[in-house]
Nucleic acid binder design. Structure first.
Lengths: 142, 142
DNA sequence: ATATTATGGAGTCATGAAGTCCACAATGAG
DNA sequence: CTCATTGTGGACTTCATGACTCCATAATAT
């Protein structure tokens, strides 16, 4: 039940791009600014492109741009782009116990947790996180 | 962000024992009834004993008993007995980015999710899960 | 005494996260 | 046109961890 490094990288890259949403950002730039291994970032960006979160252009002066405004991209989108569908439990031991003479008493619990998680993820946009950052920065300056 | 099989086994064993909370249940019995590999269950039970959730006695007619009533054992206890402290994020890249010129804009989000998760886990007791099971069983009979 | 039950710890196996490498494709600048 | 720059696709490596297995040992009821 952990946030993977890969997801962390993705979120960081996107928040970074969200700073100037219209500009193009090269992989190299993102990698350096956010301290993400270049080759690994490449892999991550591919997924984000494929899932339609960012647009890419190749060649010199190529790079990535957000496809939507920061307030239109929520964390669920990002999560699912990287990790796939959100699911906390695989139903285990399908054949014998669960199916036959009792139903899993745990499932409702994990379901509730999962739902509340999804809701929070959906309610949080890139913009929220950008705001978070600016506030903190300002606090630190004062 | 997955419920491990180990945790599943633990919860299932405990709900099973919660059925007759005072009785002693041998590992073999639990293993067979719940379809959990005996040797692996041994490992899990050790943790539950060490963390004070169940009491054990060895020798013939030995076995395990719940140390508290089912309504006094919540899922957080079980979770932490098996997986250790609940924590969704390790703060990554501690040295450079986070600490120096900005604070992580993601942290508040993961915190919120984690808190809501913990709350639900705490609010759910073994008894709740037992009730769940009985209800379902009755439904199936009718 | 002995069979039964739990304890402790080492060892195995498979999977997946995290990261590396490299050959290839697109494209803007001179 | 060509060449340096930037992204794409995929194979490969490394390491940690979950999910077991095995075995030798300790306690104890009969």
């Amino acid at each position: 039940m952990q946030v993977t490094k890969t997801l962390d990288y993705a979120v960081r890259s996107l928040t970074y791009m969200g700073h100037q949403p219209v500009e193009k950002h090269s992989m190299k730039e993102i990698s350096q600014e956010q301290h993400i291994p270049l080759n690994y970032l490449a892999k991550i960006m591919r997924r984000l492109v494929k899932k339609g979160l960012v647009r890419s252009s190749v060649g010199p002066a190529g790079g990535y741009t957000l496809r939507k405004l920061p307030n239109e991209i929520n964390l669920r989108d990002i999560y699912e782009a990287i990790e796939g569908e959100i699911r906390m439990v695989e139903c285990m031991d399908k054949d014998s116990i669960c199916a036959l003479y009792e139903r899993c008493p745990q499932l409702p619990v994990w379901d509730r947790i999962q739902l509340s998680m999804i809701k929070i993820l959906e309610d949080t946009t890139l913009e929220d996180m950008l705001r978070e950052r600016k506030t903190v920065t300002l606090n630190q300056v004062n």
